[in-house]
Deep mutational scan, measured.
Amino acid sequence: MTSCHIAEEHIQKVAIFGGTHGNELTGVFLVKHWLENGAEIQRTGLEVKPFITNPRAVKKCTRYIDCDLNRIFDLENLGKKMSEDLPYEVRRAQEINHLFGPKDSEDSYDIIFDLHNTTSNMGCTLILEDSRNNFLIQMFHYIKTSLAPLPCYVYLIEHPSLKYATTRSIAKYPVGIEVGPQPQGVLRADILDQMRKMIKHALDFIHHFNEGKEFPPCAIEVYKIIEKVDYPRDENGEIAAIIHPNLQDQDWKPLHPGDPMFLTLDGKTIPLGGDCTVYPVFVNEAAYYEKKEAFAKTTKLTLNAKSIRCCLH
């Protein structure tokens, strides 16, 4: 018999989150649709729960009410004593943790798909938090293969000092899905179709896995975050240069030392320094102006996964 890495157990509980950011409308629209008619997301033997994560922000069509829901799922915020004085999103995070967690427990949901849009030209993107997770690498390989020839990129946010504390991190297997470009507060049919297909293929993978299909060893190309880059700023902290036209919409493309990065209003080009080629992502993302992030630098690498098969009882 072929030796293989056996994944822990079959997958039982899956959640699909929309509206973690209330103005990213593809996930909101799909989740609302699936709450009314969820036939397309159901798979035999699998509990799939669509869920609106930040209903107040969705109602106002804004990213958040008090603070970013997708950055506060750490033990400090989840452990705060519940009171009306807490920011709305912290209270909501505790409610979500109660419903789908608790985080880092045996009772937490197996998989959470968190649906997002970006204003950046990132196409279909899967966000991975753990480079050693054979199950998710296999799932992402399946999704990428199923979507081809449509490109699907994998963004690895594993980093020693950049801690995200994402909404989906309460699950055993957290999956971020990011599709763009799409303006905030807008629905685009092409973007919706791409996100819908990503979810379909992900659920198909889980179904095949649960039925005992063995997935042979595989490898995927990923883009691992190195650092986030702020806009150049003046002495008052105001933005002093904008994304250069040569960099705009060039997510995932190589940016070499000396290539144009920013452009000042008086026409001066600010190039990339250093001696390493990087791959920019979230270029000129609207939501990241407040976070002082013009783009993120990534490096390209390959992740390998062992063969996996479900432990059938």
Rank of each mutant, 00 (worst) to 15 (best):
V186Y: 03
P151G: 01
P245M: 04
K306Y: 08
R91W: 09
E76R: 12
Q94V: 12
K81E: 14
G185A: 04
E24C: 10
E285H: 13
Y164I: 12
C4V: 12
H33Y: 07
P232K: 04
I170R: 08
V58R: 03
I177Q: 05
Y231M: 05
L255N: 03
A7K: 12
I270A: 01
C67S: 11
D249F: 03
P55N: 10
R63C: 07
Y153T: 08
N284M: 03
Y153W: 09
Y231F: 14
V229N: 00
A240K: 12
K80L: 14
I157G: 15
C152Y: 05
V90Q: 11
V278G: 03
I270Y: 02
C311K: 15
E106G: 13
T62L: 12
T269Y: 01
T62A: 14
E36C: 08
I199L: 09
E106A: 14
W34F: 09
R309G: 07
T167H: 09
H256R: 12
E158Y: 02
A305R: 04
D66T: 08
S108W: 07
E9N: 15
H244A: 07
K32Y: 01
T44R: 13
K103I: 11
A165Y: 10
L301G: 06
L35H: 08
E8T: 12
D104M: 12
V154D: 02
W34E: 03
D193S: 11
Y279G: 05
T53G: 13
Q42I: 07
T167S: 13
E214K: 08
F51K: 02
P181F: 06
F205C: 05
R309N: 10
E211V: 09
D107W: 11
L115I: 07
H21I: 07
A241I: 07
Q184P: 12
C4W: 10
R63K: 14
P102K: 11
H159A: 12
S161L: 09
F73E: 12
I52P: 01
E47A: 10
F135Q: 04
N54G: 02
V281G: 02
I308K: 02
G185S: 07
N284G: 15
P160D: 14
Y164H: 15
I226E: 09
P271C: 13
T298M: 06
E290R: 09
G267C: 05
I157R: 15
T125Y: 01
F100V: 06
K224M: 00
E285F: 04
P174N: 15
I65E: 10
Y88I: 07
L162N: 15
I72S: 14
S108C: 14
I112F: 02
Y142F: 07
P260T: 05
I199Y: 04
S83K: 13
L247F: 02
C218W: 01
R56S: 12
I112R: 04
V28I: 13
Y279W: 11
C67R: 12
V229A: 06
G212V: 01
P55D: 13
R92K: 11
D234Q: 08
V31A: 15
E178M: 15
A171K: 04
D251P: 02
V222G: 04
Y155D: 06
D266G: 08
G274L: 02
H116M: 09
T119H: 05
A240L: 08
D193C: 11
H10Q: 15
G212R: 02
C310W: 08
A165M: 10
R233V: 14
C61N: 13
G176I: 14
Y155G: 07
A241P: 00
G267L: 03
A171H: 01
W252S: 02
F215Y: 10
N70Q: 09
K300E: 04
H141C: 01
F215Q: 00
L147C: 08
C124N: 08
F209W: 10
M195Q: 11
Q248W: 01
L203W: 05
L162R: 15
F73D: 11
Q248P: 03
S3F: 07
I239C: 08
G79A: 13
I52D: 04
P216V: 02
N23T: 06
V90D: 07
P245H: 01
S120C: 12
K103C: 10
A15M: 02
L263G: 03
K144M: 15
F205W: 01
I220A: 03
L25R: 15
I96M: 10
S307E: 09
N23D: 14
F282V: 04
H10R: 15
F205A: 06
S108I: 09
F73R: 10
E36H: 10
L263F: 07
V222Y: 04
G38P: 15
G176K: 15
E129I: 01
R63D: 07
K291D: 10
K300S: 01
K306F: 07
A171N: 04
E9W: 06
T269M: 09
N210Q: 07
K213I: 14
T62Y: 10
S83I: 13
L86G: 12
H244D: 02
E227V: 02
E84I: 14
G237Q: 07
S169D: 07
Y64G: 06
Y142H: 08
I16G: 00
T264K: 08
N121I: 00
M122N: 08
Y164M: 14
A165G: 14
I52V: 11
I112E: 05
L301P: 03
I220T: 04
I143S: 04
Y173K: 08
E95S: 10
G79H: 15
Y231V: 00
E285P: 03
Y88S: 07
K213A: 11
P102I: 09
A202V: 04
T299L: 14
R71Q: 14
L203T: 02
K49S: 10
T302P: 02
D230T: 10
I72C: 15
F73L: 11
S83Q: 13
L192C: 12
L162M: 14
V222D: 05
L136W: 04
Q94G: 11
V14K: 05
L136E: 01
K291M: 07
A240H: 09
T299P: 04
L272E: 00
V48D: 03
N134F: 08
S108T: 13
I308H: 00
C310S: 15
P245W: 02
W252T: 08
K197H: 10
P174V: 14
L247Y: 05
K60L: 10
I143L: 02
R168W: 07
M139C: 00
T277F: 02
F262A: 04
E290V: 09
E211S: 14
R92H: 07
D107H: 13
